[in-house]
Write a protein that binds this DNA or RNA. Sequence first.
DNA 1: AAAATAAGTTAGTCTGGCCTAACTTTTTGC
DNA 2: GCAAAAAGTTAGGCCAGACTAACTTATTTT
Lengths: 236, 236
Amino acid sequence: MSAAREVTETETLSGPAEDYLKAIYAIGKGTGPAATNEIAQRLAIAPASVSGMVRRLADQGLLAYERYHGVKLTESGRRAALRTLRRHRVIEAYLSQALGYPWDRVHVEAERLEHAASDELVDRMAATIGEPEVDPHGAPIPTREGSVDETEYTSLAQLDVGASGVVVRVSDEDPEMLRYLAELSILPGKKVTVKSRAPYDGPITLSVGRQELSIGPALAANVLIAPLADRGGRRG
Amino acid sequence: MSAAREVTETETLSGPAEDYLKAIYAIGKGTGPAATNEIAQRLAIAPASVSGMVRRLADQGLLAYERYHGVKLTESGRRAALRTLRRHRVIEAYLSQALGYPWDRVHVEAERLEHAASDELVDRMAATIGEPEVDPHGAPIPTREGSVDETEYTSLAQLDVGASGVVVRVSDEDPEMLRYLAELSILPGKKVTVKSRAPYDGPITLSVGRQELSIGPALAANVLIAPLADRGGRRG
DNA sequence: AAAATAAGTTAGTCTGGCCTAACTTTTTGC
DNA sequence: GCAAAAAGTTAGGCCAGACTAACTTATTTT
């Protein structure tokens, strides 16, 4: 797997520019298109501001942009996004494992550090904690070479009654939700089984370890599961 | 020594603003005045740019500014400068001790991280490596409460022939110089003795451990010494 | 004390990145 | 297929922080 080392290329992106690329990557899952409005919403800025930045990024060859029709990452843009994503997730993992940072706050701190940390620092962090493959919320860490595990998982909200699975990942941005999930012990690696599901998008009852508990579908949608093959699986 | 915890106050300074305060602190040794030109030179920007920023910082109560007559830090400005200095030096110490960062590169990395790292992160770093009192170059680390050791040391260039001292600190900004000093094993904690000094600002011969070597006065000026009382001491 | 030099400031410009308001294009719903 | 709604863009501002060029104030030299 020793791929050729990627050339460092541009390397001089502003913090905001990196945030745009990350957002576009997240929206399009790496390769898909991203709408102006959605970028604006993710970054909490006005749509008009997005148009301007998007043009600049397109000029730098990072985006494919067609007026009135959203944007896509170019190959070079995708690589830049993955570099930032790697930084973010390595930093999260490092803060958590090496400094005992609480998992509901690593995201915010990493958001700020990811634009300042050098690749060397990030690589040293990764090496120090044993080249982690996922961040504390279960998100896969892109490699130095720019590849990333793109497996799509089922959300807990979609798991059939009776089905079991292992929690692989939870959404990382909402500290309060993270604290709540930790309280319920819904954490990456835990096995969960769906016991029942109330109609009309009602609460979902599930068991985690020896506990039985009930959560709403909105929360369940933020918990990604690797289904176990003991009974059932997905549900359309 | 458990002083009352400082109030966090403003907390929202830009990166450049923090750099200005650090520079002004360095020039005035904390309390003295700083000249516009010298600030400009340290930050590698035009003097005209300094006038503008200095006005903004004065408006925020961080500087005492009198047109055409340089600036001084206010108490609040001094505290802000020391917060940044603490961040910088804790980060340097952490990079060096926890991540094996080479000492000639910690400065550059810390310059970028010091504006992004939260106080919580810096405090965790400090705690993890045992609350260090100096950074890898021997510079004292300000406390959380904003006090700092202001002892002034003699430079190696000023040490009398025959006098000995312990290296306490070396200048941290020039990586090449740091590599050279390390090569000569002129490092914080090492004992040195001046053997001879050539006239007209000529080379200084000294012994470090069992080695004997010769350095120029420009380099010697960047090495601060705590004199030992075995023979001689300073020289005017 | 006047002239020369150095230091510092203002004026005006630029870029990045954001904003609101007004306009245009695309999509949607009937 | 056309009108309303949604999405996206341009125009025009603003702020921070840098720049150069031109000017003012301080300091030094003679």
